[in-house]
């Protein structure tokens, strides 16, 4: 959809220079009030005192961050140690999101490459086939996956009737199910940017490599891959970031057994814990992590643009 964003046409012109502030005002207003202000308010909340069973008291407190990083024992009076609980939850989420990203890359790259090397008319149809599932409600897709992976579900009955396995493979409520769910949710995000990059790739480079008797796979590794790297990186970010804060896949496919970042935050506002400042602090830490990833990406992107230009 945004594939042709940078190709062709003219760059920035100044036809409506005088009116630009007025034209931007609705966007500034809406996003400033509905996104930026709430995020800043959340930052404030993370430094407030928690009210018993939900809500906040307007007194400055570092308790939320203290709870996140320091373990003072079950009763809160042991000497402070590093708290591994929440770091472990974040680590688990990073790991799950990372596994889902790698899985998407392993399947998504060959798919994107294959599609981009079809004749032009066929490409549209392939892209169409890849994007349709993305237009289906994420919730419905996750529920479908849960149905498919059940012990007595269609996949296991298929495997058993064909004699591939003797007893059902237990998949639901496992980390594997969560990874498959995340992979499945965001796969099109991996395929599309890589597809766009490969489509722009100049295949005379591969020809040159072949003329120099480079092996096919060496060509892929040393010529094609570096050339389409921006697409690969963009795809990885587009899969990794939403996976990191995901909530549906762990809940519906993982059995809500282990907290992930998303469910940990949700629990503070809608579940048992009722600790708003802590939920706000965990959200801020997640947001900071994502922003750091994006800044590193933007820097790298700017550097490679400079090198290319």
């Amino acid at each position: 959809m945004a594939g042709g964003a940078t190709s062709g046409g003219n760059a920035v012109t100044d036809t409506y220079k005088e009116a630009r502030n007025w034209l931007l005002l609705p966007a500034w207003g809406t996003l400033g009030i509905m996104v930026l202000a709430p995020v800043l308010l959340m930052l404030v909340y993370s430094f407030l005192t928690k009210e018993f069973r939900g809500g906040v008291i307007w007194e400055f407190s570092l308790a939320a961050y203290d709870q996140f990083f320091f373990d003072r024992g079950l009763f809160g009076d042991d000497p402070a140690k590093i708290e591994w609980t929440y770091i472990a939850i974040f680590w688990r989420s990073i790991w799950q999101a990372g596994a889902a990203t790698v899985l998407s890359l392993l399947i998504g790259f060959p798919t994107a490459y294959f599609i981009a090397t079809r004749p032009e008319k066929q490409r549209v149809i392939w892209v169409f086939l890849i994007t349709i599932p993305y237009w289906v409600n994420l919730l419905i897709r996750t529920v479908s996956m849960r149905f498919l992976l059940r012990d007595e579900g269609p996949l296991n009955s298929f495997l058993m009737t064909t004699g591939l396995v003797d007893s059902p493979i237990h998949m639901i409520n496992t980390n594997f199910a969560v990874q498959v769910g995340l992979f499945y949710s965001y796969l099109p995000f991996m395929v599309l940017p890589i597809y766009a990059a490969v489509e722009r790739y100049n295949f005379t480079l591969s020809e040159a490599a072949a003329d120099l008797y480079a092996n096919k796979w060496i060509t892929l590794r040393h010529i094609v891959l570096p050339a389409v790297k921006p697409g690969v990186v963009a795809g990885c970010i587009l899969v990794f970031v939403p996976s990191l804060g995901s909530f549906l896949a762990p809940d519906l496919l993982g059995g809500a057994k282990n907290f992930m970042i998303g469910s940990l935050i949700e629990e503070q506002f809608k579940g048992n814990a009722g600790n708003w400042p802590f939920g706000a602090a965990a959200s801020m830490i997640l947001l900071t992590m994502v922003l750091i990833i994006l800044v590193i990406y933007a820097r790298a992107q700017a550097r490679s643009d400079k090198e290319a230009g």
Binding site: R53, G54, G55, F269, K270, G271, N272, G274
Partner: peptide, 12 residues
């Protein structure tokens, strides 16, 4: 689906 979830929603 739980008393605690109900309380949290009311308070939120």
């Amino acid at each position: 689906d739980s008393n605690e979830a109900m309380l949290a929603t009311l308070k939120a």
